[in-house]
Design a protein around this nucleic acid. Structure first.
Length: 544
RNA sequence: GGCCCGUUGGUGAAGUGGUUGAACACACAUGCCUUUCACGCAUGCAUUCAUGGGUUCAAAUCCCGUACGGGUCACCA
């Protein structure tokens, strides 16, 4: 039996050769310094904030070098797979304007872009390695593996399937292997490692810098029992065939680099450049750990949609984590688009940053303060239609009032920063809607005596209120009202001699404010009264 | 346990041997402004860069050790 026939039995149903694929996926026609990057999520549900982070970084590098950024679905673990996972990923990323030059949706010349559909390709490569005696079948069971690990732990040796521990299976003859297969014993294909743990390899990581490792000497699994490759093998094959130049990924992969280097070497390829990004972390009980979708709601990008935290704010925040000089750049270039920023590996942190919700919300608040009232209205409506139907209906019904309210003290040099998320808008505008303002329940005694309140409202609305007043006239009249009732109309005078007055102009304003809105904190009262109009104001006063 | 990475304030960080008296942003505190709130403005917030030693005229910056934190050692990615 030739090695070719032997390999065909171990990896059956392969129609093409490795060479065929190598020739099929031609070198990309790009400039020397163009970066080809990829993002390779697993379809295990909605997108992780770390995946978004990596996608933003990868995209930036690709587009600033006129390169290519593609999406490859890494679904070689069918156990963890979730239904509709691919669409979930595509949709979530699209929400953040992360599109791809090549993806399962768009296709591209280097596809398929879903690893499970590349099964034959990996098979051809594995077959080739078996033919060259660089890979071999392994029949070892779960239990046997466990006992090896136990023995290694006991003798304080290194843990893993290598050297002496793998020798027995390496030495299996073709006949022995064929017999086992005939008996139906399941197997995986392992790499026949050539590495020596005593040898050092040096890798120049784009972010971490020079890192030294011992060579890999583990006979790692490359093809699983189900015929699909492991991450390591798929990475080597795919990133060669797809001509990736830079592998950007989380730094939990850093310690696998020796495996990857050996894989590329065994295949006879130049490995890509690596850029291991520090992961976003979370603090719990005084300990830091990688932010996790299971434990931390904010690790899931859906969380931001639900809360209504603007897409751009999340992007800006992630950009500041990626390159801390990004924030300064943004201040210096207020009118530039995020896409004009040049990202640098050198400016990336080598240690993981703690996720800071406060900072994100501050960015969101600044961002929302700068958009127009109309845009604010539309985005809020979009959010509400998905997460608060009742609010959405009201927004549509009272569009004019909603926009006018959102516009109070907005389009100016120093705009208000009331909202960090669309879910907060309801609390800031609901009281302006006639239909929702049905009573004036309030703990009035908190702000003044009931008698005083009555007096203020009666006097002000009967003698001073005029809806045609300008803001200056309006405020002068509030002050006149103060003078008449014994409240200080001038704050400075009041502070010098508070006992001489029943209160001050702020107290009077507060009474009017609460009477009209049931809130002690609102944007500019004058604007609110303008928007409400005479009739509605009258109605609200009568409600009391 | 082996291997690897990291350690500048409450947080993100600037910083690559001497204009750093350790930027900037968030948070926090105080004050000013002010019809409330928000905004804005001003001031304060690390006598010190995990720690011990070394090199040097000079170190957060270079070297060595230690401690602490993180990652990884799957037929998961």
């Amino acid at each position: 039996m030739t090695r070719e026939e032997y390999a065909s039995i171990l990896v059956p149903n392969i129609t093409h050769t490795r060479k065929y694929y190598e020739e099929l996926y031609k070198k990309r026609d790009l400039k020397e310094d163009a970066m080809v990057v990829r993002i390779g999520p697993s379809p295990t549900g909605s997108v992780h904030i770390g995946t978004l982070y990596q996608a933003i970084v990868a995209k930036r590098f690709a587009s600033q070098t006129n390169g290519v950024c593609f999406l490859r679905i890494e679904d070689t673990d069918q156990k963890r797979e979730v239904e509709d996972g691919v669409n979930l990923i595509l949709n979530s990323l699209a929400k953040y304007d992360i599109g791809f030059d090549e993806s399962p949706l768009e296709g591209g010349e280097y596809g398929p872009y879903i690893q499970s559909e590349r099964k034959e390709i990996y098979g051809a490569f594995v077959k080739d390695l078996i033919e060259k005696d660089l890979a071999y079948p392994s029949f070892i069971t779960e239990e046997e593996k466990k006992s090896i690990t136990e023995a290694q732990t006991k003798s304080k040796g290194r843990i893993g399937y290598f050297g002496p521990w793998a020798a027995k299976e390496r030495a299996l003859s073709i006949e022995e292997v064929l017999n086992k297969i005939k008996d139906g014993i399941p197997y995986v294909i392992r790499l026949k490692s050539n590495g020596d743990f005593e040898n050092k390899i040096v890798v120049e990581d784009c972010i971490k810098g020079r890192v030294e490792f011992p060579e890999n000497d583990m006979d790692i699994v490359i093809l699983k029992r189900d015929g699909l490759p492991t991450y390591h093998f798929a990475h080597a094959v795919d990133d060669f065939l797809m001509h990736t130049t830079h592998v950007t990924r989380g730094d939990e992969w850093l310690s696998s680099v020796p495996i990857h280097i050996e894989l590329f070497k065994t295949l006879g390829y130049e490995p890509p450049k690596y850029a291991h990004l520090a992961t976003i972390q979370k603090e719990e009980d005084g300990h830091r750990r990688k932010i996790s979708k299971r434990k931390d709601p904010e690790a899931n990008v859906l969380y931001y949609s639900e809360k209504g935290i603007p897409v751009d704010a999340v992007k800006i925040y992630l950009m500041t984590l990626a390159n801390s000089n990004f924030e300064e750049w943004m201040i210096e270039n207020p009118n530039s688009k995020l896409e004009e920023f040049t990202m640098e590996f050198k400016k990336m942190s080598t240690s993981g940053a703690l996720f800071d919700m406060e900072k994100l919300l501050n960015i969101a608040r600044n961002y929302l303060s700068k958009i127009s009232a109309k845009e604010m209205y539309e985005e809020t409506l979009l959010w509400a239609e998905k997460y608060d139907k009742e609010f959405a209906d009201m927004l549509k019904e009272e569009k004019e009032i909603a926009i006018a309210t959102l516009n109070i003290e907005r389009e100016s040099q120093k705009p208000r920063k009331d909202f960090a998320m669309y879910s907060e808008v309801k609390n800031g505008v609901w009281y302006m809607f006639k239909e929702w303002f049905t009573n004036n329940e309030y703990e009035w005694q908190k702000i003044n005596d009931l008698e005083n309140i009555k007096e203020i409202l009666n006097t002000y609305f009967k003698e001073y209120y005029d809806e045609t007043d300008t803001e200056e006239e309006w405020f002068n009249k509030v002050k006149l009202c103060c003078d008449k009732l014994g409240y200080a109309s001038n704050m400075k005078e009041y502070k010098q001699n508070p006992d001489a007055y029943k209160g001050n102009v702020a107290d009077v304003s507060t009474v009017i404010r609460v009477a009209l809105t049931t809130k002690s904190k609102t944007p500019n009262l004058y604007d609110i009264m303008k928007i409400l109009g005479k009739e509605e104001i009258k109605r609200r006063i009568e409600l009391i």
